[in-house]
Every structure is written in structure tokens, then in C-alpha cells.
Design a protein around this nucleic acid. Structure first.
Lengths: 190, 190
DNA sequence: TTGCAACCGGAGGCATCCTCCATATAGTAT
DNA sequence: ATACTATATGGAGGATGCCTCCGGTTGCAA
């Protein structure tokens, strides 16, 4: 996964170091235990004070978004890679499956992030938008090929998939998830 | 909505009174502000101590479930009433729409409740099960009429609708909800 | 009226989020 | 090297919300 090390306003070396350590620790914790991490634990594991964590990530949401940034970029890259696939429909479905798995893996962190309304111009907002743009291409291809209904909107499909992840958070059941996913796929088909 | 006043083991009059006041207060609060109510507030508004609330409803989930019980019974009744409708497909869709609206109204309280795994034999578990049974009849009718694919399972459809509610909790958008719902309906159609 | 089992209610323990500010330090100017 | 200062640190503690515990109260049966 690409390290999206964004070089922003000049920071002191120790600040930059702590920023990265905190983010890495959070990413690991989220991957392992889900999005409802305890920020105090992250700070301890990262070896910094809680105050330091809060300076770099003023709200819980900020930390989650920063951790999710990589995933958004990754999903965007995948969409672009799939744009040349022979079957437009399969490409779209594969990408949607990735969306589902990424969400399930990060324990709906993706969903938690996607669900929030981002202020225009935010780094995460831009990343999400460009991820959606890349996905929209897949959808358009499939629609142009007449395999997906013309009136289907990507936003709805994505949000539906996030809904699947959310609805299966408490009692995850692969069979159930698969069934729900198939239902959505059937719904977009011509 | 029918008052599901369940007369259980004999209780002192004051206990029974408080039980009902708390439940009514909680229901009103949930309808107005959603499922993430503050139990301390409920107790205060009901004019009882927090200890009293917790005696009657040992966990937050217990209170939510009790408040949801009526909705489950109502949804069951609606399903039974719709079983005689001329169009089996429309009947099913109407009922699913109810599911969606009830969830949105109670701010996904329904979803929160449905999502939890209930221990066998619980009052709420039985209510939910019989609600699902009633809904399953609608699905079977529509399937028998060849209007819904045979492999569609009710559980998946219901959970998908709860997912819609969950995914739209933060930033509710009627247009989005409608689009997602239509997508699901398209997905079950033959 | 009396006795007691059932019931009440709120103080307080615990977890978590987040703020504030006295202290420490990186980087720069001398 | 030294001093200076803008920047960064970190943990004490305030706020909120969940839930438990137990001394005091009360309905109700005899």
C-alpha cells in the first residue's frame, strides 16, 4: 500500500516523526481491531502523550480519515487499472467487491469515513472524489456496453455497499454478506 | 400503534407505573432524536432515578428492544394485512418500504435492534421472528407469482434495507435513500 | 397498624473523549 | 558554542455517558 506521506506546511522534525508514528500505529490498530479504537491506547502504543495525538489529529474523525487516505488512493488506483479489463461488467463487479472487502477489513472504517460529509477541499474529500471518479469510469463503460442499467448512479451503489458492511458489523456472516452483495449486483444489471 | 403492555410476573403498582412511564418517555425520545438517547435524560424526563431505569431495563439494548417491540408487532400486522393484496409484488414492495420508513423514523433503532443477535426465546426475538415469518409469506407469494427471483432470501433483503438506513444516518438524503431502495427492488425482481 | 419484600434513587466507579498549559526542544541567529 | 524563541510535548483533569451498589422508602398483605 502506498505511503501517502503528504508534505505540508514545514514542521519540526520531531513533530513530523510523531505524526507518522501515530498514523502508523493507528493504521495497524484499525486493521486489527476495527475503527472503534481507543485514542488513548494509540497514543500509548505510539509512545507519545495523548496531547500530542490530539494536536496532530484534532478529532477522532481526522485520524480515521488520515488512516483511510491510503485506502482511497489504493481503490482509485485499482479502478484505473481495471478500466482496461476485457469485460466491463466484471471489472465493475471486481472493483465493487474490493470496496466491500476494504470496508470489511477496516471494520467499516471506510464506511464511517465515507458516510461523513466532508468539507470541500479537504485532502480526504479530494481523495474520495477522485476515487469515485475513477470508479465512475468503470460504471460508464459497463453502461455503455449495455450491461448495467443507464439510470444507476455510482453514489447509490457505493453507499449500498457501505450499508452492507455496516449492517454486518455486529454479527459478520460471510454467506449473508455474499447474498446481499449479489442482490446489489443483480440490481444494477440490465 | 398498539400498546404492547405485556403483563409479566406480578409487580408492585409503583414499579409497573414507572416501567410504563420510562418506556413511553424513551419511545418519544427515540422518535424525536434517534436511537442514541442518553439514558440519564430519559430517567430525568420520566421523573425517576437512573437506578430505577436500570432496574427495569438492565442494559441500553433492553430498553431499545422494548421500545422496538411495538414496531415489530406493527410490521407483522402490516405484512399479514398485505398478504391479501391483489398484486403480490406491490404488496412486498410496500412492506419493504414500511421497513425502510420505520427504520428511518426511529433513526435506525430498528436497525440497531435487528442487527443484534438475540438469544432464543426472548420476547423481542419471538416478535422479530414472527415479523419475519409474516414478511416471508409476502416474499413467497411474489416468488410463486414469478415476480421475484426464487433464490432471493428475505433475511438478505431486510438486512440490506437496514443497511440503507444505517448508511444514511449521518447525512440523510431522501433522494439517495430512494435510489438505493429502488436498486434493491430491482435486485430482487425476476 | 405493622412488617417486610419489593422498590426507589442518586452517589460514585469506570471508560473515553478532548482541552489546557507548564515545560521541553529543534532550529536559527549571533 | 551559546542564546533565543517559535514550535512541540505530554499528562493532569474537566466533561460526558454507561452502569452498579446499597441505604432509605413504600406498597401491600395480614
Amino acid at each position: 500500500m502506498s505511503e501517502a506521506t503528504v508534505t505540508r506546511a514545514p514542521r519540526r522534525a520531531d513533530a513530523q516523526r510523531n505524526y507518522e508514528i501515530i498514523l502508523a500505529t493507528a493504521r495497524a490498530a484499525i486493521a486489527e481491531r476495527g475503527a472503534n479504537i481507543v485514542l488513548e491506547d494509540i497514543a500509548r502504543d505510539a509512545g507519545v502523550g495523548i496531547g500530542t495525538l490530539y494536536r496532530h489529529f484534532p478529532t477522532r474523525q481526522d485520524l480515521l480519515e488520515a488512516a483511510f487516505l491510503d485506502e482511497a488512493l489504493e481503490l482509485r488506483a485499482r479502478a484505473i487499472a481495471l478500466a482496461d479489463a476485457p469485460s466491463t461488467f466484471d471489472a465493475l463487479v471486481s472493483w465493487l467487491r474490493l470496496q466491500r472487502d476494504f470496508g470489511a477489513h477496516g471494520r467499516s472504517m471506510g464506511a464511517a469515513v465515507m458516510n461523513a460529509k466532508h468539507t470541500e477541499g479537504t485532502e480526504i474529500q479530494i481523495a474520495c472524489a477522485s476515487m469515485r471518479d475513477a470508479g465512475a469510469v468503470l460504471l460508464q463503460h459497463a453502461q455503455a456496453a449495455g450491461e448495467v442499467r443507464a439510470e444507476v448512479e455510482l453514489v447509490d451503489v457505493l453507499r449500498l455497499i457501505h450499508g452492507i458492511v455496516l449492517a454486518n458489523e455486529q454479527a459478520p456472516d460471510a454467506r449473508r454478506v455474499e447474498g446481499m452483495f449479489d442482490l446489489v449486483i443483480a440490481g444494477i444489471r440490465t
